[in-house]
Design a protein around this nucleic acid. Structure first.
Lengths: 254, 254
DNA sequence: CGCCGACTTGACACCAATCAAGATAAGTGG
DNA sequence: CCACTTATCTTGATTGGTGTCAAGTCGGCG
């Protein structure tokens, strides 16, 4: 960044239009989006202590930084924005959570960041104290959770590399390649990627400004790497070249 | 960053002058630097499977990215640099590890980054397979490790905020405040902080250049926040103002 | 004592933040 | 369903922070 980003103020996301519904996870479901790391038995154990939350729309607060932390969250469907606010009102988006992702990191009993839905979402919620007891009873389940935490740490480290090394166009390319991996948002046949977040969400995630994100899109489009269908929908024309761009090869791009 | 940082090449750290000694952790020791999170009994269990490594000097490789991962590491004494290299030779320092810190994050059986000693160091080493078995037998120990991982994730998130929101002078201020917390490196009476790393180490950690770090030191010194005794030793004249600077208050600083 | 690397400072170029204005899309109410 | 309002997105012009190159200084080690 060149100039201080202090003083920016952004709308916090409109207020919820509909209160979230909640009900027991064993009704109807019983299957968690953790099939890749947990056995069916483990999923059943977890589902026993879970509650399902239904957020009917984007822009709804799930929890806010500073609140007492009583739950860990798991996304079944939808996308959630995890962010942190500076005292001056500027914002850092720490990550976007997709189906199968866990969130709700706490420190000394309080949430250290804010979670809001970007789309309508279905989310599982686990009471921390009951989860803790379950993990002590099921060491294998706990080990799987530890693995998941390690992956989350690795993801954060990759973001550090993006912010520390790459300039704006490459940051956006990296972000697009990340989004590409999420099924349901990328149609590989039509090469169509759907973005559930706004330009300023992307900007605050990449440590830049919404205007710079727009300019980066323009640059990628001019070089034939993608084509904007609408602001939140892009056709990826050359994913290979996008990937190489992130890795630093062939960076002849203004 | 303003200009592409591609193409920078830096020395990788000189080769080890002396091969590291290693011996069983139960000889003499039996106490791990994890007293704050582990019970004495748990420390003993861990020490049973540990090996002690002695690195006589800084600049020694502990492991390199891509190598098969067989161990988790715990620092007893000394400082270690964790870094990641881009194909073009530029480098991102992901963090500095201090006494009590765990490192050795792997992905699919391989280390994803490189660890080198910055000072002489004493380091415990745990074989992953035996550690895994121990964690399954001791769920409470595992839960403590999970907590430690959560702290590490939180630290990475703070670094994301630093890189995404702060400009160079504030990044350095933030870094100095981090270093200040480590006993043995900050003498609170003399207000003297000892830095075990070079300017380019700091630069690669903060996503900037060694020159900019030097300029940031100059700026902080000009404003009376600190005084350079030597390049690696600074007197912190006004820690409160340093802290406020990081938080974004009173940023009338060129 | 002398060499060499690490650190500092200056000059310059360039990327990106900011301010401003217009275009597009989305949401609202008649 | 359409007109209107409003937020979001894009583009241009300008300015400021910082990366890069270059030269000089300091400090440490042999």
């Amino acid at each position: 960044m060149a100039v201080s980003s202090a003083g920016r103020k952004r709308p916090r996301g409109r207020l919820p239009k509909v209160i979230a519904r909640e009900f027991c996870a064993m009704e109807g479901h019983g299957r968690l989006p953790l099939g890749n790391i947990l056995s069916p038995a483990e999923q059943t154990e977890l589902a026993k202590i879970a509650t399902v939350l239904e957020y009917q729309t984007g822009g709804m607060a799930i929890f806010s930084e500073g609140e007492d932390a009583h739950f860990l969250y798991l996304i079944d469907d939808g996308v959630v924005r995890i962010s942190w606010h500076l005292p001056d009102g500027s914002r850092q988006v720490l990550g976007f959570m997709w189906p199968g992702d866990l969130f709700g990191l706490a420190e000394e009993g309080r949430y250290v960041n804010t979670a809001e839905s970007l789309t309508s979402a279905t989310i599982f919620r686990f009471p921390l104290e009951r989860l803790r007891r379950l993990l002590l009873q099921e060491p294998m389940l706990q080990l799987h959770l530890l693995t998941k935490a390690a992956h989350e740490l690795r993801r954060a480290q990759r973001q550090i590399i993006v912010l520390g090394q790459l300039q704006n166009v490459k940051r956006l390319a990296s972000f697009i390649m990340d989004c590409r991996q999420h099924v349901g948002f990328f149609d590989s046949r039509a090469r169509l990627l759907r973005l559930p977040m706004s330009r300023s969400d992307i900007a605050d995630y990449l440590g830049t400004s919404a205007e710079s994100v727009a300019r980066a899109f323009t640059a990628l489009e001019r070089d034939g790497l993608l084509r904007r269908i609408s602001p939140r929908s892009v056709e990826l024309l050359d994913s290979d070249r996008l990937a190489r761009l992130v890795r630093g090869i062939g960076d002849n791009l203004r």
